[in-house]
Measured scan of single mutants.
Amino acid sequence: MATGGRRGAAAAPLLVAVAALLLGAAGHLYPGEVCPGMDIRNNLTRLHELENCSVIEGHLQILLMFKTRPEDFRDLSFPKLIMITDYLLLFRVYGLESLKDLFPNLTVIRGSRLFFNYALVIFEMVHLKELGLYNLMNITRGSVRIEKNNELCYLATIDWSRILDSVEDNYIVLNKDDNEECGDICPGTAKGKTNCPATVINGQFVERCWTHSHCQKVCPTICKSHGCTAEGLCCHSECLGNCSQPDDPTKCVACRNFYLDGRCVETCPPPYYHFQDWRCVNFSFCQDLHHKCKNSRRQGCHQYVIHNNKCIPECPSGYTMNSSNLLCTPCLGPCPKVCHLLEGEKTIDSVTSAQELRGCTVINGSLIINIRGGNNLAAELEANLGLIEEISGYLKIRRSYALVSLSFFRKLRLIRGETLEIGNYSFYALDNQNLRQLWDWSKHNLTITQGKLFFHYNPKLCLSEIHKMEEVSGTKGRQERNDIALKTNGDQASCENELLKFSYIRTSFDKI
């Protein structure tokens, strides 16, 4: 039985969820670079991206490699990797027998973001014989899940209580170790020597080791999670996991709180800001991140802002960003909400898709409305799209047979046209069989910064309504002859009103 693990408890099935942008060198404390989270699957090609990484700022997932063999891993080693800020997950990587050479110096898994409450997941690794993470000293947050690894031993010899604050939620089941077939031998045991430290858990006094050649490092209890030197002297209180010299914040392997210019500090002093819960960055760093993602459509890219001495992905609820200094300031009234469309555009074809934009005031991208039916549609669209004030790209209304009016965009005031449909149009209306009105132009103002209007096959939309939009939106004169079809717009509506004058002759039985 794995020490510190839980057996036999019912657990939810383990679901495996399925960018080499360097964020800056980590400095003297770390020998390499800070790398983003990685999802490495199918083959070993991307694994080489770990070569210079000291910190993975995010998670590391290595999974679904069915053609790899043990010899493929023999020359692979990433000794610079010290810390993973989120979680480490391995799933069905064939041929991998140990992690001792792959990650010989991995010391800390912070667990800032977890995989279903777990910071370390080893699942269905069919050839893994031992973990071998002999320098792993601290899992700051989260638990361990090690399950269905039929060859995995050296679990009962690990004292997880020396690595985690609590072992109650560890789930370590259905491994070879369960069948008591392992016969784990710690260093020196074969020669009758006791080389590794022994600890007591559940009444068992057991030597602690990761492999037959690597003991588990056990520091004096007084050192807590700070770690200790090879001689057993406690590291500085700002260290986490390990250090090369005692009581020196510049000799830590990793930091308990924050890293700044080669030393570990309790908090980031001005003019620095907390970033990702582990390091200090200056304003320029946060500003660069903001600008890199301002026009990016890459998933996970955030326009970072500053709030409460932190550089964070977005302002919290009730705050909006001051564009001059990136500071989050309290909103006066309802907060603006910028919604970034991942692929640059979004099609609204149902109430469900409209709900995804609920509360958005600025759309960074283009909207395509293609709704053919739905219950209580006008009210639903207004509830979900009615706060949109600005669209950076274009607005396209296409084959939306259920629409009679666009009044559900009740606050839309600006279409920038930074991206144009077919390279020309910022407003595009095609084949809307029941569209009769755009907006009530006596109450609604709309500016279209650039781009043209396109109207074709809107049989109940009168040309007068379209011409009014040209005047109000500032697009009059931009359109070419064929942009607004004269014969297919309003051709099934009563669009022309003329005053009919009647004269009559009164007659009676005795007068003409």
Rank of each mutant, 00 (worst) to 15 (best):
I146A: 04
R297Q: 13
W160F: 06
Q245R: 08
Y30N: 15
G142S: 02
C223G: 01
N175G: 03
H302F: 06
Y134A: 10
G142A: 02
H59T: 13
F258T: 04
N308C: 02
N43D: 14
D277N: 11
L99P: 01
T85R: 13
V108H: 13
V34I: 05
G227P: 08
P104N: 00
D72H: 05
Y273D: 05
F115C: 02
C153A: 01
E180I: 10
C196V: 03
V218E: 06
R298W: 14
I222E: 05
K294N: 02
Q303V: 10
A230H: 12
R145I: 02
V206L: 13
P79S: 08
E97H: 04
P334R: 15
L50P: 01
D159K: 00
I163Y: 01
Y94G: 02
L50Q: 02
E180M: 08
P70Q: 05
I306L: 07
H302R: 08
H291V: 03
S323H: 13
C186A: 01
N322A: 14
T194H: 15
Y171H: 15
S161C: 11
P104Q: 02
M83K: 03
I146M: 07
E97F: 15
Y134V: 12
S77D: 07
E151Y: 06
E49S: 12
V173E: 13
T68Y: 05
P334L: 12
I158Q: 02
R110Q: 13
G241K: 02
D72C: 13
C315Y: 00
L240V: 06
M38D: 08
H307F: 05
F116L: 02
R298I: 07
R263I: 11
S213A: 05
C196S: 05
T211D: 07
C335M: 02
L136K: 00
F103G: 01
H236K: 04
S161L: 13
R263L: 12
R110Y: 05
T140Y: 07
C301R: 05
W160Y: 07
N322T: 07
V218S: 04
H48W: 10
E238A: 10
H236P: 03
L106S: 00
I158W: 02
C223R: 00
D277W: 07
V121T: 06
Q303C: 12
H302L: 06
H302P: 12
P334M: 04
W210P: 01
